[in-house]
Write a protein that binds this DNA or RNA. Structure first.
Lengths: 229, 229
DNA sequence: TGACTTTATAGCACTCGATGCCAAAATGGA
DNA sequence: TCCATTTTGGCATCGAGTGCTATAAAGTCA
């Protein structure tokens, strides 16, 4: 086996930490948010692959090299502040009452960490749309979501015993991830306008072991399309 | 949105079809299998990232350019003849009796498509180990497995009605994928030696909606480690 | 045997993402 | 003003991947 994260093509792994004006030296000339805005605009207009890092940097008024100090890769731009969401998920899971059924806790936690204000939804839809359709981003999502899985696996292991790497925790975690991804993808691609409801129902289906009757009922309710604004 | 697969950096999408001596012109100087053998050897020895395509090509006695006629990317080498397995999965699903419960069909189909001979297991373990640990391959797996998901979603849609892109089919498909991946990863990383059993149990857990008691029982049976040969 | 067709190959140039290295710019403090 | 600190930009370099083209090897047909 080996590998798993070698120096590879010369990488040290630890890159310069993203600029965060410590009121001492030169002040950062921009922010992650500003770069992301420009980048998402270009992605939305020209497509992810057709947008080069050079173009993003130019649009953001920085150099190509500086771009890579704010984001480790072009793909990371689309993910925004995903890491913060992980912390919230973990908090939700560890804060749940011990006597609440495991899958209920999981469902509530995922739903809770995915409540967004009306103002954020448009941008989120662009992000999730990209993540679930552009091959390069679909690929990268597996890496980003790995941490999400770890959080869930830790929680499950805490409930049922045994190591987080065991079959039980891993299966629950990855199946839960798939469930969440499905809900997001369906929402982003306009199956419905209710993200929270979509996630909630998806997890209820999962918790029921994908009961065929329940699935049939849900499928027959053709509530697709976004209500006309 | 846009994009989803533009010409991108000049790509036409359809590349030269991999050489398949049609008893007419010059004969291919090697085979996919030969290249894969060399490559997996190097991956196993030096790590995936540290192994350049140049090195693989040299080891296989071909040019760098020729390598890319046999495999579309360095990552694809690890996946071998995965496409063929998709066909088998689809066959298993469509061939199942209509009155057999959906999740049972799914479980049996996945188990059936993942029976391997003793001779194949060692190489498979290397492949799956790489796929589930090397970041670049973890990433790529999401793309390769997307087709797997489609097959399952089609099957589910056929059972419960509605479009394959709906929440129901998508959720089942992605959760099933996560389940299968968990079983494979656990097996590849030596939790057990019984791949079939691992997959079977993972899908039973899924079909039960991850019943907590059942999970606990499974977790408490510490049958890990490969029995001494 | 010699054209002709077909198929596979090697080599080159090029794009793009990503990283290391270093000098220059900007800012606050002594 | 000099210095430490931090950000920035430019340059070089690597590696994956692709288009293009000339060439090599094989079969076919006259």
């Amino acid at each position: 086996m080996t590998d798993a994260n070698p120096a590879g093509a010369g990488g040290t792994g630890v890159v310069d930490s993203p600029p965060t004006s410590a009121s001492r030296g030169r002040r950062p000339s921009t922010t992650r948010e500003q770069i992301a805005r420009q980048a998402l605009d270009l992605f939305d207009r020209d497509g992810f692959d057709a947008t080069t890092v050079d173009r993003i940097a130019t649009a953001a008024g920085i150099s190509r090299r500086t771009f890579f100090r704010y984001y480790n890769s072009k793909r990371d731009v689309v993910w925004g502040e995903f890491d913060a969401e992980l912390v919230r998920l973990r908090d939700q899971l560890v804060g749940a009452p011990r006597d609440e059924p495991m899958m209920d806790v999981l469902r509530r936690a995922v739903v809770a960490t995915n409540r967004f204000g009306a103002g954020e939804l448009d941008e989120l839809r662009i992000r999730m749309g990209l993540i679930s359709t552009v091959p390069a981003l679909v690929a990268h999502s597996a890496v980003r979501y790995a941490e999400w899985c770890e959080v869930v696996a830790d929680f499950v292991a805490g409930r049922i015993g045994g190591p987080p790497g065991g079959l039980g925790p891993q299966t629950v975690a990855r199946a839960a991830l798939g469930t969440a991804m499905a809900a997001f993808a369906c929402w982003a691609n306009h199956d419905t306008d209710d993200l929270t409801g979509e996630v909630d129902e998806a997890f209820r289906l999962l918790g029921d072991g994908f009961d065929e009757d329940r699935l049939r009922i849900w499928a027959s309710q053709d509530r697709s399309r976004i209500p006309a604004t």
